[in-house]
Every structure is written in C-alpha cells, then in structure tokens.
C-alpha cells in the first residue's frame, strides 16, 4: 500500500506544480492546496503508517511500539492548519486584487502599481 500512496504523493505534487504554473490566480491557489496536501501526506507516509492503532493511552504504562507515531501526526496537524491560514489569506488577497484590477492573470501582476 505504501507504494500506491507514494505514487499518490507524486501525482498530488504533479497536479500542484502544474497548477501553480498557471497564469490564473485561482488555479494558483488551488495548486498551493494540492502542494500542501501532498507534503502532509509525504511526512505522514515517511513516519511509517500503521492501520488501526491510534495513539491513545490508558492509565497504565503504555507501550510505544504498539502504536502509531504521535509526533509526525502533531506536526502534520499543525501544517494542515497553517496551510489553511495561508490559503484563506491568499484567497482574500486574490479577491481584493481582482476587485481592484479586474484581472485573474498573474502576468498582470508584474507591476506593483495599479
């Protein structure tokens, strides 16, 4: 299954890179989302995937080897949230940009003056 997931990571990256190279800013933003998803998945995959053993501990002393690794999960969780923040901000920025300039073309962004 890891191989399949690795291919998925590759395809997500491909889609993301392809989209951030578009001139349309909306596509660009969606490209960022794909890239961030792909990266999250890569980190998650690299830490080793275990099915059905979520990291919950009881009151007795827990055995770490019997569970998934909690650290990458914490990292990825943070990454998801931050990624969301970036996307929302970029989207708002895009919205304002369109309002002011009436264009969706990244190449029009060449000049900073409106």
């Amino acid at each position: 299954m890891e191989i399949l997931l690795a291919i998925l990571v590759g395809i997500l990256y491909t889609a993301g890179v392809y989209m951030i190279l578009r001139r349309s800013i909306v596509k660009f933003i969606i490209g960022i989302i794909f890239l961030s998803n792909a990266t999250n998945l890569l980190v998650f995959l690299a830490s080793g995937i275990v099915s059905g053993k979520p990291v919950f501990v009881g009151e007795e002393l827990a055995d770490a080897s019997q569970m998934a690794d909690p650290l990458p999960q914490a990292l990825v969780l943070t990454a998801i949230v931050i990624g969301f923040g970036i996307v929302v901000f970029t989207l708002a920025l895009k919205f304002k940009f369109f309002e002011l300039t009436g264009t969706d073309d990244l190449d029009q962004l060449k000049k900073t003056d409106t």
Binding site: F44, V50, Q73, I80
Partner: peptide, 11 residues
C-alpha cells in the same frame, strides 16, 4: 484509516 484520527478530523 492509518490511525491518525485527529488529522482526519482537522482535515
């Protein structure tokens, strides 16, 4: 599926 419930919820 791969034991990351919190991630799933957040995502």
């Amino acid at each position: 599926y791969y034991s990351a419930i919190d991630l799933a919820i957040t995502q």
